[in-house]
Design a protein around this nucleic acid. Structure first.
Length: 404
DNA sequence: GGTCGTTAGCGCCCCCTGCTGGC
DNA sequence: GCCAGCAGGGGGCGCTAACGACC
């Protein structure tokens, strides 16, 4: 699953609170058009009014605006699947269900025995339902008892329409409000979502499931809501401010960042984010025609091929040396010409051109010997010393002896 | 989106030096 | 004392991977 773009200006969050969210609004992208969670309109996408009715929460100017961020470790995956019921459906022990099918998209999830069951949601008239299967290991909210997932998003809303059940969720995104307890419907109905009430908002991304199956996969990312006084949302931490050189839209500032779900990486640009995501795959489409080694990028392949051909485009201006990469040239110049040594030891006067050399040097202070010989008690401070030592076991002669 | 420059990291090899034991 | 063997510390380069910035 890819990462999550967070683009939540304060006004948008106001809309979140006002329950008017539709994907095109919430995830409206900017110039690059890239926006996760915003897919092409599916067949079930209907510009229907939100069935929740006029739940506009008011967020007056100057009101405290929450900061929305996602927490990487809190990602949950639900699988929705349409289920056709013939007629009278016998659902055992449905007392826990929220009996408000007329509202369309109320989803209730029950926990049993400490684990979430696969449950279903009732559509109108019980004729069509959405089965929710909780993927094992993916859903880790341990402390839920009975939860109600209130769909706040238009795509979900149309799920109540006949023949447009879960399909309408495809390639859409929105927010779910996840509440514990039962008596908070009133709060919703009043539109009185109070960020201070400790509620949780979940960014929901819906994508089609396996081919040929009428199935929707929801990815739910936790959104943290923090209070900030008199500050626009999303100003802190890794959420980078967007440049406001373009037309400033009233007072709102659009800050967004692209956060990888698989590591701590964040990027301010979609192109950087997309490129980063490829590092989590084994995809290496660029293959060297000389040795068949594969690389992720054309640049890496080009540098590699240059090592075959001996092409060294980066020539030192102070000597005859030439290198395949600019980084090698810079390093060479530091070693040979500028003598710049940025990496300085805090324990002595040693300084090095390379960080790895400083790291190796520090071991001479600490005595650390991470490279253990498997054949004797010897341990080395660096890999090559161990390798050199290993030759003494093989009796291959005096390797590495100075002057030989 | 592609490219370039930069940074980081690992590995390899070498040099210089000091220590030790055998002769 | 000389020399070979070995290890410690460090210099320099080869190469890959990844990312920010720019076009």
């Amino acid at each position: 699953m890819a990462g999550t773009e967070i683009s939540v200006p304060s006004e948008q969050f106001t809309k979140i609170k006002s329950l008017e969210l539709i994907p095109e609004v919430l995830f409206e992208d900017e110039e690059d058009g890239a926006c996760r969670g915003r897919g092409p309109p599916g067949p079930g996408d209907v510009q229907a009014p939100c069935p929740y009715g006029p739940l506009q929460a008011q967020a007056p100017e100057g009101e405290q605006k929450p900061l929305l961020t996602t927490e990487e470790s809190e990602k949950h995956i639900l699988t929705l699947q349409t289920v056709q019921f013939s007629e009278a459906v016998e659902v055992q022990d449905v007392s826990w269900l929220s009996a408000q099918p007329q509202e369309g998209v109320q989803v209730t999830v029950q926990q049993a025995g400490g684990r979430l069951q696969s449950e279903l949601w009732l559509g109108q008239g019980f004729q069509q339902c959405v089965a929710i299967s909780i993927q094992e290991e993916a859903y880790v909210l341990q402390d839920m008892e009975v939860m109600e997932l209130h769909a706040l998003e238009g795509g979900l809303a149309v799920a109540s329409e006949e023949s447009k059940c879960a399909v309408s969720l495809a390639e859409s995104a929105g927010l779910l409000k996840l509440e514990k307890g039962q008596e908070e419907d009133q709060l919703l109905a009043e539109g009185g979502l109070d960020p201070q009430a400790g509620e949780q908002l979940f960014l929901v991304e819906a994508k089609p499931g396996d081919e040929g199956r009428d199935e929707i996969v929801l990815t739910i990312s936790n959104l943290h809501v923090e209070e900030q006084e008199d500050k626009p949302a999303c100003v802190q931490g890794h959420v980078e401010k967007a440049n406001s050189t373009k037309k400033p839209k009233k007072t709102k500032e659009v800050k967004r960042t692209f956060q990888c779900d698989m590591c701590m990486f964040t990027a301010s640009r979609i192109s950087s984010f997309n490129r980063h995501m490829k590092t989590h795959t084994a995809e290496k489409p660029h293959m060297c025609h000389l040795c068949l080694k594969a690389f992720r990028t054309v640049t890496l392949l080009r540098n590699h091929v240059n090592t075959h051909t001996g092409t060294k485009p980066y020539k030192c201006g102070d000597c005859d040396m030439a290198f395949v990469t600019s980084g090698e040239l810079v390093r060479h110049r530091r070693y040979k010409h500028t003598h710049e040594k940025p990496f300085k030891c805090s324990l002595c006067k040693y300084a090095s051109v390379e960080a790895s050399k400083l790291k190796r040097h520090v071991r001479s202070h600490t005595g650390e010997r991470p490279f253990q010989c498997l054949l004797c008690t010897y341990a080395s401070k660096d890999t090559y010393k161990l390798k050199r030592h290993m030759r003494t076991h093989s009796g291959s002669g005096s390797v590495g002896v100075s002057g030989i």
